[in-house]
Simulated assay, not measured.
Amino acid sequence: MSEGIGEARTARAVVVAALDAVIDRTLRDAELVHEHPAPGRWLVDLPGTKKLKTVCGLIVGEHALRVEAFVCRQPDENREQLWTYLLQHNARMYGVAYSVDRVGDVYLTGRVPHAAVTPEELDRLLGAVLNYADDHFNTMLEIGFGTSIRREWDWRVKRGESLRNLEAFAAFAQAGRTEPADGGGAPPPESGG
């Protein structure tokens, strides 16, 4: 009995080593920042434009390579609207799908059979993860965190603070407002004492 267990462990170690070699070569060729904390486990940084970085985990499982990437934390509001938005996109996505964990945080997850793990397929999958996390990120934030975004926008405008990292939400934050976003012009001059 223990001989069979040993053979199974050896066979698994061979599979993990072979897939690790493919993953390592693919990530190095793509010049992606990555970590390899243990055999069969990888963390890859995917640089985006809207979501500046998506960390994607690649985990060699018993029969498939698991792909997991955190997209955003659980929404503060409009959960059902956000879930509907994500589910409508799932039908058109390649290799991964949106999912939520027990607390409602949003992930991209997928599985690829060992035999399908090639440099070309890994590149395609990582591109899909980056595309889906990045392209829909601002819309997900507007749906799930709209009140917070508008509140932060208003607070910064009132105090003359920089809106630089909120620029992507300018139209959203100002929708339905009748006054200019900058509060009606330049801030009043400071009074001398």
Rank of each mutant, 00 (worst) to 15 (best):
R12A: 09
S148R: 11
I5T: 12
A173K: 02
E161G: 10
H114W: 09
L125M: 12
C56I: 05
A97N: 08
H36S: 12
R164A: 09
R25I: 00
G95P: 07
V16N: 03
L87M: 15
I59V: 10
T139F: 00
G104L: 05
A21D: 08
G183P: 09
I23W: 00
V100S: 11
E167Q: 15
A17Y: 02
F169I: 08
V16M: 03
M1G: 11
A38W: 06
V157M: 07
E190L: 10
G57E: 15
R66G: 11
L163I: 12
E35V: 01
V96H: 03
G4L: 15
R25F: 03
V44L: 05
L163Q: 14
S148W: 13
R28S: 13
S148G: 10
K50F: 11
E179Y: 08
P187F: 08
Y85L: 06
G144H: 04
V16S: 01
K53T: 14
E31P: 00
G144Y: 02
G146H: 04
C56Y: 03
P189H: 10
T54D: 04
A21V: 01
W83T: 06
T54K: 01
A173G: 06
V157K: 03
P189L: 09
M1P: 03
E80L: 11
P37D: 06
W155I: 03
P189W: 12
E152R: 09
G40L: 00
V22K: 11
E77D: 07
G146A: 05
A186P: 03
A13Q: 05
D20P: 08
R124Q: 08
N78R: 12
D20T: 05
H63D: 08
H63R: 10
L43Y: 09
G110V: 07
C72S: 15
N78C: 02
A175R: 14
D105S: 14
A175E: 11
E179W: 13
L58R: 02
I5N: 11
V55R: 13
V106C: 02
L122S: 12
R66W: 10
A17D: 13
V33T: 14
E68Y: 04
P47S: 14
T118V: 13
R156D: 04
W83R: 07
D29I: 04
T49W: 02
C56F: 03
L87P: 01
R12P: 02
Q74T: 05
G48M: 06
R9Q: 12
R150K: 15
A21W: 01
E161V: 04
N165H: 14
G104E: 03
E68P: 00
A128V: 07
E152S: 09
R159P: 01
E7F: 13
Y107H: 15
R41C: 06
G146P: 05
G192Y: 07
D135H: 09
N90P: 09
S162V: 09
A91D: 01
A91F: 08
G176E: 06
A128F: 04
V71K: 02
L87D: 09
D76H: 10
K53D: 06
H89N: 07
T49D: 08
I143Q: 06
S162T: 15
G104S: 05
A17Q: 14
E179G: 07
D29E: 13
L87I: 07
F145M: 03
M93T: 06
E31Q: 11
E121P: 04
V60F: 03
D182C: 10
R156S: 05
V22Y: 05
W155N: 12
